[in-house]
């Protein structure tokens, strides 16, 4: 950017400039006010972030001081009983498991769609498909939740029974035929929800692959898949990683979709097809209604953990993107 510094007005203005601006005084004041305002807004944003951390930490400390259980290892969430006893073990486990399920399903499919749009789909179809995927990112999470609870849950019973028949011996995939309002279902729903985000970011990265590299590979007789494996995927790897982490950030913090498809319980169970478990965000939404003042502080404590986790995941994703930008500029 070659925008001149603000002190461009300092040299004595030629007579013509006096006609253009209403005198140098107001010019300088205008500049100062405007740059101050815009700088202030930037600082406001930083202050909001700091305030979020500070106030959550403050309320959380109140709750943690009176906690009878161990915040990290207790299974139950009985913040409203006396004495209060609550811990995030089950919530952390559920959050991680449902997010892993979502990532395992969503990332390969999203990369596939991104490749489909950039390299496989007929030209005329590619733009509309990308557009539709964009629109799907805009479907509100509560609608996904409603669909998940009323359509997906009943329709997954058959699949889960099938999994149980052949893979039930693994314990992880055993299932007894009750309504599958489970971590697995939540993970599948989350996968559907984060698919558009991962697809969009990956697609943009794949589309930036240097054309000459692809053509060079083609000229050497590579098949389309070999072109993708040798030029597109290596070029887009960090982009896909950061896209996945953005998706992960969303999956970790998703509230309503999980709250509608999960029957919470205080059990930490490896049987992820079976109803039960919980996630940070789901627990906040589900327990909030019956919580008193102290219960809310406890929920804020779990929210703080979620905040820190998503902060780390998103921060890492952004750093990867930023680093990539620096060296891809040389190729452009």
């Amino acid at each position: 950017m070659t925008a001149p510094p603000t002190d461009i007005e300092t040299p004595a203005p030629p007579p013509s400039q006096v006609l253009l601006s209403n005198g140098k005084g107001s010019t300088r004041r205008g500049d100062k006010v405007f740059s101050g305002l815009s700088k202030g807004s930037g600082i406001t944003l930083l202050l909001i972030m700091a305030a979020i951390a500070a106030f959550l930490a403050y309320r959380a400390s109140i709750a943690l001081a009176d906690n009878e259980g161990n915040f990290l290892t207790t299974f139950e969430w009985d913040a409203n009983s006396i004495p209060p006893k609550f811990g995030i073990a089950v919530l952390a486990f559920g959050t991680v498991v449902s997010s892993i399920v979502a990532m395992v399903i969503a990332v390969p499919i999203a990369v596939g769609i991104a490749l489909f749009i950039t390299h496989y789909a007929p030209r005329r179809l590619a733009a509309p498909i990308a557009y539709v995927i964009d629109l799907l990112a805009a479907v509100p999470s509560i609608v996904y939740g409603l669909w998940g609870a009323l359509f997906l849950v009943p329709h997954l019973v058959g699949t889960y029974e099938w999994l149980d028949r052949y893979l039930g011996w693994t314990v992880v995939l055993s299932f007894d035929g009750t309504a599958p309002r489970s971590l697995m279902t939540a993970g599948i729903l989350l996968a559907v929800m984060i698919l558009p985000i991962i697809t969009n970011v990956s697609r943009e990265v794949f589309a930036q692959t240097p054309r000459l590299q692809e053509e060079a590979a083609l000229a050497l007789g590579a098949t389309r898949w070999e072109v993708i494996r040798m030029t597109v995927l290596p070029f887009g790897r960090s982009g896909v990683i950061s896209a996945s982490m953005l998706g992960l950030g969303r999956a970790l913090g998703e509230t309503m979709a999980v709250a509608t498809v999960l029957s919470p319980s205080a059990l930490l169970s490896a049987e992820i097809l079976q109803a039960g478990g919980g996630t940070f965000a789901q627990n906040i939404a589900a327990s909030f209604g019956e919580s008193g003042q102290f219960g809310r502080d406890a929920l804020i404590a779990s929210g703080l953990v979620l905040f820190v986790i998503t902060l780390l995941v998103n921060g890492a994703a952004r750093l990867i993107i930023a680093r990539r930008k620096e060296y891809s500029g040389a190729n452009a």
Binding site: K39, G42, I43, L45, L46, I48, M49, A51, I52, F55, L56, Y58, R59, L246, G249, R250, L252, G253, E254, T255, A281, I284, A285, R296, L299, I300, G303, L306, F307, T310, L311, V313, N314, G315, A317, R318
Partner: peptide, 27 residues
Amino acid sequence: LAKAVTFFVDVMTGIPSIVAGLFVLSL
């Protein structure tokens, strides 16, 4: 300052909505 703002704007995009809700609730 600009670098910090850029970074935190990006990170802020990923704040779970329930956390924003909890913040306003607490304050």
